[in-house]
């Protein structure tokens, strides 16, 4: 009997255990990025702009050139980098505190300018690295270390929906919200990444993929329950789907 390997870590992934907690979806998101870069033949042309949060160490796991941006500023850093090297593939990898709070101006304007960059946005509704504080994406009722009684809409406002905002901007070429909670959704996430990355390669414009993800540690849940929370609580509030695709007929 001869057998073949049908699933293995892509070569672009540096072979070391990650520092992420059990059940954290950053590992899945990293792998999907790595697989798409590999399949598109971009590995040696990729410039990764890391951000601040748990994923600051993405450069320890993806074997590509990288620079570390200040908190929230990755889209601005990526703008400068892409303008300096227009023939290279530039992407940012940002969490929800980084992108949707402190970096809101940078992400909105990079998208609105139609920068030829790609943004991987991991939304787990909480500040992970600093220990579970309320994020702009924290759902109403969700407990965090800075809203221990649960987020209150009157006091803190409601969770911000980024894909809806980015999808509404003129410079955005592709914007999709996906989820990492099931095999089907993970396959869809990979397709979305490929689509967003192609928008950059073809010079079409700005690509944005939001990935709903789990943070079991700061949600104070076991990994399997945390995964279920995405399905049952996050997706109803953060609907999955394509918010903008300029290559589709009938759209901008």
């Amino acid at each position: 009997m001869s057998e073949k390997l049908v699933f293995d870590a892509p070569e672009i992934m540096i072979d070391r255990p990650t520092h992420y907690c059990p059940g954290c979806h950053h590992g899945v998101a990293h792998r999907l990025v790595g697989e798409v870069l590999t399949e598109m033949g971009l590995v040696d042309d990729t410039l990764c702009v890391g951000s601040i949060g748990c994923s600051v160490f993405i450069y320890n796991y993806l074997d590509v050139d990288a620079v570390e941006a200040p908190h929230g500023r990755a889209p601005a850093v990526a703008t400068g980098l892409k303008r300096a090297h227009k023939d290279k593939f530039v992407f940012t990898y940002q969490g929800d505190g980084d992108l949707a709070s402190i970096g809101l101006a940078e992400i909105v304007h990079a998208a609105n300018r139609g920068e030829k960059i790609s943004v991987v946005f991991v939304n787990n509704t909480v500040y992970g690295m600093t220990g579970g504080q309320m994020a702009p994406t924290t759902l109403v009722g969700q407990k965090s270390t800075t809203c221990p009684d649960g987020r209150c809409a009157d006091e803190h406002g409601q969770a911000i929906r980024m894909s809806e905002i980015i999808g509404g901007l003129g410079g955005t070429a592709y914007c999709e919200r996906v989820s990492l909670d099931s095999v089907k959704n993970i396959r869809r996430a990979k397709k979305a990444l490929r689509k967003a990355f192609e928008m950059q390669i073809n010079g079409t414009g700005f690509g944005f993929v939001e990935m709903l993800s789990a943070c079991p540690t700061n949600w104070k849940m076991d990994p399997v329950s945390a995964n279920t929370r995405i399905t049952e609580e996050m997706i109803p509030y953060f609907p999955l789907g394509v918010f903008k695709d300029v290559t589709k007929d009938g759209e901008e």
Partner: peptide, 26 residues
């Protein structure tokens, strides 16, 4: 060359950081 009117000085300086990382005169 490239000219970008940034959304803020915060962004302008970080664009400078990005271009500098690319090794160009910015």
């Amino acid at each position: 060359g490239e000219f970008v009117q940034a959304e803020s000085e915060v962004a302008a300086a970080n664009m400078l950081l990005g271009a500098a990382a690319g090794g160009v005169r910015a």
